[in-house]
Amino acid sequence: MNPTMDPAKELMSPGHLACAGCGAAPAMRWALEALGPRTIVVMPACCWSIICGPYPHSALRVPTFHTAFETGAVTAAGIRASLDMQGLQDINVMVWAGDGGTFDIGFQALSAAAERNDDIIFVCYDNEAYMNTGIQRSSATPAGAWTTTTPGGKIRPKKNLVEIMAAHRIPYAATASIAFPDDFISKMTKAKGIKGTRFFHVLATCPTGWRIPSSHTVKLARLAVYSRAFPLYEVEDGERYTITVHPRDLPLRDYLEPQGRFRGLTKDQIEGLQEEVDRTWNRLTRLAGWSS
Protein backbone atom coordinates (compact mmCIF):
# COMPACT_ATOMS: atom_id res chain seq x y z
CA MET A 1 0.00 0.00 0.00
CA ASN A 2 1.02 3.53 -0.64
CA PRO A 3 2.54 4.65 2.68
CA THR A 4 0.85 8.04 2.48
CA MET A 5 -2.66 6.57 2.58
CA ASP A 6 -4.67 6.86 5.77
CA PRO A 7 -7.23 4.02 6.03
CA ALA A 8 -9.51 6.14 8.22
CA LYS A 9 -9.81 8.73 5.47
CA GLU A 10 -10.12 6.41 2.51
CA LEU A 11 -13.12 6.96 0.29
CA MET A 12 -13.55 3.25 -0.38
CA SER A 13 -14.65 1.27 2.64
CA PRO A 14 -13.71 -2.35 3.47
CA GLY A 15 -17.26 -3.74 3.24
CA HIS A 16 -17.19 -4.13 -0.55
CA LEU A 17 -18.17 -7.30 -2.40
CA ALA A 18 -15.19 -7.89 -4.67
CA CYS A 19 -13.88 -11.44 -5.11
CA ALA A 20 -10.75 -12.28 -3.16
CA GLY A 21 -7.78 -10.90 -5.07
CA CYS A 22 -9.86 -8.68 -7.37
CA GLY A 23 -7.61 -6.15 -9.08
CA ALA A 24 -10.47 -3.71 -9.56
CA ALA A 25 -10.66 -3.08 -5.80
CA PRO A 26 -7.20 -1.52 -5.33
CA ALA A 27 -7.66 0.29 -8.64
CA MET A 28 -10.60 2.20 -7.14
CA ARG A 29 -8.58 2.92 -3.99
CA TRP A 30 -5.68 4.43 -5.94
CA ALA A 31 -8.04 6.49 -8.13
CA LEU A 32 -10.00 7.98 -5.22
CA GLU A 33 -6.81 8.55 -3.25
CA ALA A 34 -5.76 10.95 -6.00
CA LEU A 35 -9.14 12.54 -6.73
CA GLY A 36 -10.46 13.06 -3.21
CA PRO A 37 -13.97 13.56 -1.87
CA ARG A 38 -15.15 16.17 -4.39
CA THR A 39 -15.70 13.41 -6.94
CA ILE A 40 -18.83 11.90 -8.46
CA VAL A 41 -18.51 8.33 -9.74
CA VAL A 42 -20.52 7.14 -12.74
CA MET A 43 -20.84 3.38 -12.85
CA PRO A 44 -22.07 1.65 -16.01
CA ALA A 45 -22.80 -2.07 -15.71
CA CYS A 46 -19.58 -3.85 -14.69
CA CYS A 47 -18.16 -5.93 -11.83
CA TRP A 48 -18.18 -2.79 -9.73
CA SER A 49 -22.00 -2.62 -10.00
CA ILE A 50 -21.82 -5.55 -7.59
CA ILE A 51 -18.63 -4.68 -5.74
CA CYS A 52 -20.10 -1.35 -4.64
CA GLY A 53 -22.73 -3.17 -2.57
CA PRO A 54 -26.49 -3.65 -2.78
CA TYR A 55 -29.09 -0.99 -1.96
CA PRO A 56 -29.12 0.58 0.63
CA HIS A 57 -25.36 0.04 1.17
CA SER A 58 -22.39 1.51 -0.65
CA ALA A 59 -18.66 0.87 -0.36
CA LEU A 60 -17.95 4.36 -1.66
CA ARG A 61 -18.08 7.56 0.35
CA VAL A 62 -18.58 9.67 -2.77
CA PRO A 63 -21.83 10.12 -4.74
CA THR A 64 -22.27 7.22 -7.13
CA PHE A 65 -24.62 7.06 -10.09
CA HIS A 66 -25.29 3.63 -11.59
CA THR A 67 -26.22 3.76 -15.24
CA ALA A 68 -26.79 1.54 -18.27
CA PHE A 69 -23.94 -0.43 -19.80
CA GLU A 70 -23.27 1.74 -22.87
CA THR A 71 -23.79 5.15 -21.26
CA GLY A 72 -20.85 5.75 -18.90
CA ALA A 73 -19.21 8.59 -20.82
CA VAL A 74 -22.40 10.41 -21.80
CA THR A 75 -24.02 10.13 -18.38
CA ALA A 76 -20.86 11.75 -17.04
CA ALA A 77 -21.12 14.41 -19.76
CA GLY A 78 -24.66 15.21 -18.58
CA ILE A 79 -23.54 15.42 -14.96
CA ARG A 80 -20.66 17.66 -16.00
CA ALA A 81 -22.96 20.01 -17.92
CA SER A 82 -25.29 20.14 -14.93
CA LEU A 83 -22.48 20.88 -12.46
CA ASP A 84 -21.05 23.56 -14.75
CA MET A 85 -24.48 25.24 -14.92
CA GLN A 86 -24.42 25.33 -11.10
CA GLY A 87 -20.89 26.76 -10.95
CA LEU A 88 -19.42 23.53 -9.58
CA GLN A 89 -16.49 23.28 -11.99
CA ASP A 90 -14.15 21.93 -9.29
CA ILE A 91 -15.97 18.60 -8.88
CA ASN A 92 -14.38 15.62 -10.66
CA VAL A 93 -16.72 13.41 -12.65
CA MET A 94 -15.16 9.97 -13.01
CA VAL A 95 -16.58 7.13 -15.09
CA TRP A 96 -15.62 3.72 -13.72
CA ALA A 97 -16.16 1.15 -16.47
CA GLY A 98 -15.01 -2.35 -17.26
CA ASP A 99 -13.54 -3.38 -20.59
CA GLY A 100 -16.99 -4.23 -21.99
CA GLY A 101 -18.34 -0.80 -21.04
CA THR A 102 -15.27 0.80 -22.64
CA PHE A 103 -13.94 -1.24 -25.57
CA ASP A 104 -17.26 -2.68 -26.74
CA ILE A 105 -20.75 -1.47 -25.82
CA GLY A 106 -19.52 1.76 -24.22
CA PHE A 107 -17.22 2.80 -27.03
CA GLN A 108 -19.64 4.85 -29.14
CA ALA A 109 -20.53 7.19 -26.27
CA LEU A 110 -16.88 7.31 -25.13
CA SER A 111 -15.63 8.29 -28.58
CA ALA A 112 -18.29 11.00 -28.79
CA ALA A 113 -17.39 12.41 -25.36
CA ALA A 114 -13.71 12.46 -26.34
CA GLU A 115 -14.49 14.18 -29.64
CA ARG A 116 -16.38 16.88 -27.66
CA ASN A 117 -13.51 16.90 -25.14
CA ASP A 118 -16.03 16.70 -22.29
CA ASP A 119 -14.46 17.55 -18.96
CA ILE A 120 -14.57 14.04 -17.47
CA ILE A 121 -12.19 11.32 -16.32
CA PHE A 122 -12.94 7.93 -17.89
CA VAL A 123 -11.28 4.97 -16.20
CA CYS A 124 -11.42 1.56 -17.82
CA TYR A 125 -10.47 -1.14 -15.35
CA ASP A 126 -9.70 -3.87 -17.82
CA ASN A 127 -9.92 -7.48 -16.66
CA GLU A 128 -9.87 -8.60 -20.28
CA ALA A 129 -13.27 -10.30 -20.56
CA TYR A 130 -16.89 -10.12 -19.41
CA MET A 131 -16.01 -11.47 -15.97
CA ASN A 132 -19.22 -10.47 -14.20
CA THR A 133 -21.32 -12.59 -16.57
CA GLY A 134 -18.97 -15.56 -16.41
CA ILE A 135 -15.80 -14.95 -18.46
CA GLN A 136 -16.98 -14.25 -22.03
CA ARG A 137 -14.56 -12.68 -24.51
CA SER A 138 -14.52 -8.94 -25.19
CA SER A 139 -12.47 -6.95 -27.69
CA ALA A 140 -10.05 -6.38 -24.79
CA THR A 141 -9.37 -10.11 -24.43
CA PRO A 142 -5.77 -10.74 -25.53
CA ALA A 143 -4.83 -13.14 -28.31
CA GLY A 144 -4.41 -16.67 -27.07
CA ALA A 145 -6.62 -16.33 -24.00
CA TRP A 146 -9.25 -18.90 -23.17
CA THR A 147 -12.69 -17.62 -22.24
CA THR A 148 -16.03 -19.43 -22.14
CA THR A 149 -16.79 -18.07 -25.62
CA THR A 150 -13.27 -18.58 -27.00
CA PRO A 151 -12.84 -22.20 -25.88
CA GLY A 152 -9.95 -22.67 -28.32
CA GLY A 153 -8.26 -19.39 -27.37
CA LYS A 154 -8.90 -15.94 -28.90
CA ILE A 155 -7.36 -15.43 -32.34
CA ARG A 156 -7.22 -11.65 -32.75
CA PRO A 157 -5.21 -9.30 -30.51
CA LYS A 158 -6.88 -6.76 -28.22
CA LYS A 159 -7.59 -3.25 -29.42
CA ASN A 160 -5.00 -0.61 -28.62
CA LEU A 161 -7.47 1.66 -26.90
CA VAL A 162 -5.03 4.23 -25.58
CA GLU A 163 -3.87 4.94 -29.13
CA ILE A 164 -7.46 5.13 -30.30
CA MET A 165 -8.23 7.62 -27.54
CA ALA A 166 -5.05 9.57 -28.27
CA ALA A 167 -6.20 9.80 -31.90
CA HIS A 168 -9.16 11.82 -30.59
CA ARG A 169 -6.53 14.43 -29.56
CA ILE A 170 -7.75 14.46 -25.95
CA PRO A 171 -5.43 16.21 -23.49
CA TYR A 172 -4.53 13.10 -21.50
CA ALA A 173 -4.56 9.33 -21.98
CA ALA A 174 -2.57 6.88 -19.90
CA THR A 175 -2.14 3.28 -18.84
CA ALA A 176 -1.89 2.43 -15.15
CA SER A 177 -1.41 -0.67 -13.05
CA ILE A 178 -2.52 -1.76 -9.61
CA ALA A 179 1.01 -3.04 -9.06
CA PHE A 180 2.46 0.47 -9.43
CA PRO A 181 0.37 2.65 -7.09
CA ASP A 182 2.85 5.54 -7.12
CA ASP A 183 2.73 5.72 -10.90
CA PHE A 184 -1.09 5.29 -10.83
CA ILE A 185 -1.69 7.99 -8.21
CA SER A 186 0.73 10.47 -9.73
CA LYS A 187 -0.90 10.07 -13.16
CA MET A 188 -4.39 10.50 -11.67
CA THR A 189 -3.21 13.55 -9.72
CA LYS A 190 -1.80 15.03 -12.91
CA ALA A 191 -5.03 14.25 -14.78
CA LYS A 192 -7.08 15.92 -12.05
CA GLY A 193 -5.38 19.21 -12.85
CA ILE A 194 -6.17 18.99 -16.59
CA LYS A 195 -9.43 20.13 -18.18
CA GLY A 196 -11.06 18.02 -20.86
CA THR A 197 -11.37 14.31 -21.47
CA ARG A 198 -8.87 12.23 -19.56
CA PHE A 199 -8.69 8.52 -20.25
CA PHE A 200 -7.13 5.78 -18.09
CA HIS A 201 -6.58 2.21 -19.15
CA VAL A 202 -5.94 0.16 -16.00
CA LEU A 203 -5.05 -3.51 -16.17
CA ALA A 204 -7.09 -5.11 -13.38
CA THR A 205 -6.11 -8.67 -12.61
CA CYS A 206 -9.01 -11.13 -12.31
CA PRO A 207 -8.08 -14.34 -10.48
CA THR A 208 -11.42 -15.94 -11.42
CA GLY A 209 -11.15 -15.30 -15.13
CA TRP A 210 -7.39 -15.53 -15.51
CA ARG A 211 -7.24 -18.80 -13.61
CA ILE A 212 -4.64 -17.72 -11.07
CA PRO A 213 -4.51 -17.95 -7.26
CA SER A 214 -6.09 -14.90 -5.63
CA SER A 215 -2.80 -14.21 -3.82
CA HIS A 216 -1.04 -13.57 -7.17
CA THR A 217 -3.03 -10.50 -8.25
CA VAL A 218 -0.31 -7.90 -7.76
CA LYS A 219 2.43 -10.25 -8.94
CA LEU A 220 0.69 -10.86 -12.27
CA ALA A 221 -0.04 -7.16 -12.72
CA ARG A 222 3.66 -6.48 -12.14
CA LEU A 223 4.70 -9.22 -14.59
CA ALA A 224 2.40 -7.69 -17.24
CA VAL A 225 4.34 -4.44 -16.98
CA TYR A 226 7.82 -5.95 -16.67
CA SER A 227 7.26 -8.28 -19.65
CA ARG A 228 5.97 -5.30 -21.68
CA ALA A 229 2.62 -6.98 -22.25
CA PHE A 230 1.12 -3.89 -20.58
CA PRO A 231 3.60 -1.01 -20.69
CA LEU A 232 2.99 2.01 -18.49
CA TYR A 233 2.94 5.29 -20.38
CA GLU A 234 0.97 8.45 -20.98
CA VAL A 235 -0.01 10.46 -24.05
CA GLU A 236 -0.54 14.19 -23.77
CA ASP A 237 -2.57 16.09 -26.38
CA GLY A 238 -2.61 13.00 -28.55
CA GLU A 239 1.05 13.24 -29.45
CA ARG A 240 3.51 13.48 -26.55
CA TYR A 241 4.21 9.88 -25.49
CA THR A 242 6.08 9.25 -22.23
CA ILE A 243 6.97 5.80 -20.90
CA THR A 244 6.64 6.16 -17.13
CA VAL A 245 7.92 2.81 -15.81
CA HIS A 246 10.92 1.03 -17.28
CA PRO A 247 10.07 -2.59 -18.01
CA ARG A 248 12.52 -5.37 -17.35
CA ASP A 249 13.71 -7.73 -19.97
CA LEU A 250 11.37 -10.53 -18.94
CA PRO A 251 10.05 -12.85 -21.63
CA LEU A 252 6.30 -12.79 -22.18
CA ARG A 253 6.30 -16.47 -21.22
CA ASP A 254 6.90 -15.48 -17.59
CA TYR A 255 3.61 -13.55 -17.63
CA LEU A 256 1.58 -16.10 -19.58
CA GLU A 257 2.62 -19.37 -17.96
CA PRO A 258 1.23 -18.76 -14.46
CA GLN A 259 -2.23 -18.09 -15.94
CA GLY A 260 -4.64 -20.95 -16.54
CA ARG A 261 -6.33 -19.03 -19.37
CA PHE A 262 -3.16 -19.38 -21.47
CA ARG A 263 -2.61 -23.06 -20.61
CA GLY A 264 -3.56 -24.24 -24.12
CA LEU A 265 -0.86 -22.24 -25.88
CA THR A 266 1.91 -24.09 -27.73
CA LYS A 267 5.53 -22.96 -27.69
CA ASP A 268 5.12 -21.63 -31.25
CA GLN A 269 2.04 -19.65 -30.31
CA ILE A 270 3.87 -18.09 -27.36
CA GLU A 271 6.70 -17.10 -29.69
CA GLY A 272 4.17 -15.50 -32.01
CA LEU A 273 2.68 -13.52 -29.14
CA GLN A 274 6.18 -12.50 -28.06
CA GLU A 275 6.80 -11.10 -31.54
CA GLU A 276 3.59 -9.11 -31.34
CA VAL A 277 4.59 -7.69 -27.92
CA ASP A 278 8.01 -6.75 -29.32
CA ARG A 279 6.43 -5.01 -32.31
CA THR A 280 4.06 -3.03 -30.09
CA TRP A 281 6.85 -2.12 -27.69
CA ASN A 282 9.12 -0.96 -30.49
CA ARG A 283 6.35 1.20 -31.85
CA LEU A 284 5.81 2.69 -28.37
CA THR A 285 9.50 3.43 -27.87
CA ARG A 286 9.58 5.17 -31.25
CA LEU A 287 6.55 7.28 -30.30
CA ALA A 288 8.18 8.09 -26.94
CA GLY A 289 11.43 9.07 -28.63
CA TRP A 290 13.48 6.26 -27.09
CA SER A 291 14.42 4.93 -30.52
CA SER A 292 14.08 6.02 -34.09
Binding site: A68, E70, T71, V74, G78, A81, A109
Partner: peptide
Protein backbone atom coordinates in the same frame (compact mmCIF):
# COMPACT_ATOMS: atom_id res chain seq x y z
CA UNK B 1 -24.46 13.67 -28.73
CA UNK B 2 -23.91 10.84 -31.19
CA UNK B 3 -27.25 9.06 -30.71
CA UNK B 4 -30.66 9.39 -29.12
CA UNK B 5 -29.71 6.72 -26.62
CA UNK B 6 -26.94 9.04 -25.47
CA UNK B 7 -29.25 12.07 -25.52
CA UNK B 8 -31.51 10.42 -22.98
CA UNK B 9 -28.55 9.17 -20.88
CA UNK B 10 -27.12 12.70 -20.93
CA UNK B 11 -30.25 14.39 -19.60
CA UNK B 12 -30.62 11.63 -17.03
CA UNK B 13 -27.15 12.49 -15.69
CA UNK B 14 -27.87 16.22 -15.90
CA UNK B 15 -31.14 15.92 -14.01
CA UNK B 16 -29.66 13.61 -11.36
CA UNK B 17 -27.00 16.26 -10.71
Amino acid sequence: VESEHSAMACIIGACAA
